[in-house]
């Protein structure tokens, strides 16, 4: 027997070394694949929220805000979810590389397939209404989330610039009804001749966005009325979200006034 081979075999025998059981390696492989699939699914969920936020955004109102389309686009992009998608795409790539044959594929190909998978899964999730649901879960459970994403609330709380939003509280007459904005102020909406866009339903409790003109501190003349959520992709209808938005707006108002007093 060769001296070196002899010493290796003797060491194995002397120290009673034996091959590790197969299940340990299988468990490791399955964990890596599970994490990879989970990362793709989470990436898909993030993409569903991105789609929801992009389709829910009103891309035509930038002129009311005295901004160029480019500036408005930069303000409107859902950075939180784009970062989220990027993060989980990286996790998926990392996991794939650690699968048994993951090294055989080019990282560019893995990233491409990974993003494509997130886009396809995310689109399915989006049409199933998951984008909206996840956005709601985050908005309801993570107080700081809205600071990153609720640019919509700020945009549509601008009566001086002709943008107003809130909940219909009295719906007797379509031409003149009462709206409570998300800060809790009551408005008489003069909507004679206004265009009712999207799938907005004229009923008490409906959340809407209005483009028009502020006539006084309690009267707003509407030119165009839209649903708060651009419908079609979500299943949310008359949930308690309006109350949550009001609560959050009040919280912000208190924080801002405390800051102002402190200064």
């Amino acid at each position: 027997m060769d001296k070196l081979t002899d010493s290796i075999i003797n060491k194995i025998k002397k120290e009673k070394i034996s091959p590790a059981p197969k299940w340990i390696f299988l468990a490791k492989d399955y964990s890596i694949w599970t994490l990879f699939i989970m990362a793709i699914i989470i990436g898909g969920l993030a993409f569903a929220v991105i789609l929801f936020l992009l389709t829910d955004n009103d891309w035509d109102i930038y002129k009311h805000l005295d901004k160029s389309f480019g500036e408005y686009l930069l303000l409107s992009l859902p950075y939180f979810w784009i970062i989220f998608l990027g993060l989980f795409s990286t996790v998926a790539l990392y996991n794939y590389k650690y699968t048994k044959k993951g090294y055989r594929r080019s990282p560019h190909l893995i990233i491409g397939v990974n993003i494509l998978a997130s886009v396809v899964i995310g689109t399915v999730f989006f049409y199933a209404g998951l984008g909206l649901k996840i956005e709601n879960i985050f908005a309801d459970n993570f107080p700081y989330y809205r600071n990153f994403t609720q640019h919509k609330l700020d945009v549509w709380n601008n009566p001086e610039r002709g943008l107003l939003s809130g909940v219909i509280t009295k719906a007797d007459d379509k031409d003149s009804f009462i709206l409570k904005d998300f800060e809790g102020r009551m408005w008489e909406i003069q909507a004679g001749g206004a265009f009712w866009g999207g799938r907005v339903i004229f009923q008490k409790g409906e959340r809407i966005k209005i483009i028009g003109k502020k006539k006084s501190n309690s009267i707003f003349s509407a030119r165009q009325i839209r649903p708060w959520i651009n419908r079609g992709r979500g299943m949310w209808k008359n949930s308690d979200r309006g109350k949550d938005i009001m609560k959050e707006t009040r919280r912000r108002r208190v924080v801002n006034s405390e800051r102002a007093q402190a200064n």
Partner: peptide, 17 residues
């Protein structure tokens, strides 16, 4: 190093593809 490599390989023999 060689000895270490062969012993590691033996321990991971069930992981050989």
């Amino acid at each position: 190093i060689l000895q270490d490599a062969f012993i590691s390989a033996y321990k991971s023999l069930n992981d050989f593809d």
